[in-house]
Write a protein that binds this DNA or RNA. Structure first.
Length: 308
DNA sequence: AAGGGCCTCAACCGCTATAGA
DNA sequence: CTCTATAGCGGTTGAGGCCCT
């Protein structure tokens, strides 16, 4: 099958953008807004592929892009989110206001990856590299820790981005996400994003509340331990004003019920939930990507004993 | 000073997902 | 249902700058 080129190659410029080209692109987008990338170059007077224009805008020219060095908090967030999500740069970028997926990807490859290696950690699994300096054979690429994988999968399966972010925030107890959201509270966010911010801000502002909702991860140099524990009392969390407010949102109500089920359901009989990396059901679920939600929940429920 | 190697990061490439006709 | 256009994603490349000898 012949792939349809995104644009004709004839006469199109490649390589670094000039300030003049940037100005043309900015001027056009300020006037007409984003979209229609295929026809944009001609309309804007640019001899560039539409895709090139979109990338230039998305990764460099967009006014909300934050440039400059990454803060230690951002480093920490990237490492933790990478442990949770793997090389999902776009997903990670959503938690770092003003940073693009490309920038994070580059920063990871040039800095953070090395830093982890220097600490004796495998940048793929975030686990210690054994004494031989080799990654254990049973650690396939793209496998994060069991706890991270479990929680990420639960978040991915159960939630839209809002709740994935919510879960991630809860899971990693990360102040950076909260701080970033807080800093951007003056900006126009979607209603759901605002809700997330509000929730996370509240939990950050009131550590006593946080203790009742946080999925505790045992801190380690790798960011995550193999085990994670769910605190046994979610009553405060779900009676929290902000959380109950989310129930009133039609879009969130069902998701919140599900989240409540995930976070509180298993804890009645087993307040400490420990997840090992080698849990068979996780691996099988990993391979059977199309296994639907109900089957996963069933398998999760049936394996509760394994957690303890 | 020079030049070779290394590092960084913007830009590109190839692919998938999605929407709409 | 199929096809096409478009957007978006992650991996890779290469130009340019920096550092070391």
């Amino acid at each position: 099958m012949v792939r349809t080129p995104c644009c004709k190659d004839e006469g199109l410029k490649k390589g670094a953008w000039t300030p003049e080209e940037d100005q043309k692109l900015i001027a056009y987008l300020q006037l007409h807004g984003e979209g229609g990338w295929r026809t944009l170059p001609e309309k804007a007077g640019l001899k560039r592929c539409g895709k090139s224009c979109r990338l230039r805008w998305a990764n460099y020219l967009r006014p909300d892009i934050k440039r400059g060095e990454f803060s230690p908090e951002e480093d920490d967030t990237i490492i933790k989110l990478h442990a949770l999500k793997g090389n999902k740069w776009a997903a990670i970028a959503t938690s770092l206001a003003g940073r693009t997926d490309n920038e994070i990807k580059n920063y990871w490859n040039t800095n953070l990856k090395k830093r982890l290696k220097q600490k004796g950690l495998d940048p793929i699994t975030h686990k210690p590299i054994n004494s031989s300096g080799l990654i254990p054979e049973n650690h396939k690429p793209n496998r994060s820790t069991g706890s991270a994988r479990l929680l990420n999968r639960v978040a991915s399966k159960y939630a839209v981005d809002l709740n994935r972010d919510l879960l991630t925030g809860i899971i990693i107890g990360n102040s950076t996400i909260i701080a970033e959201d807080s800093q951007n509270s003056g900006e126009v966010d979607s209603p759901t994003e605002n809700t997330t911010s509000t929730l996370l801000n509240k939990t950050a502002a009131e550590p006593s509340d946080l203790t009742s909702i946080q999925i505790n991860t045992t801190p380690s140099s790798s960011g995550f331990s193999d085990n994670c524990s769910l605190s046994d009392d979610f009553t405060d969390f779900f009676s929290n004003d902000e959380i109950s407010g989310m129930y009133t949102n039609v879009d969130n109500a069902g998701l919140m019920e599900e989240l409540k089920g995930i976070l509180s359901g298993d804890t009645k009989d087993s307040p400490e939930v420990n997840v090992t990396d080698e849990m068979e059901f996780l691996d099988s679920w990993n391979e059977e990507c199309d296994l639907d939600l109900e089957k996963f929940v069933s398998s999760l429920d049936s394996k509760v004993g394994v957690f303890v």
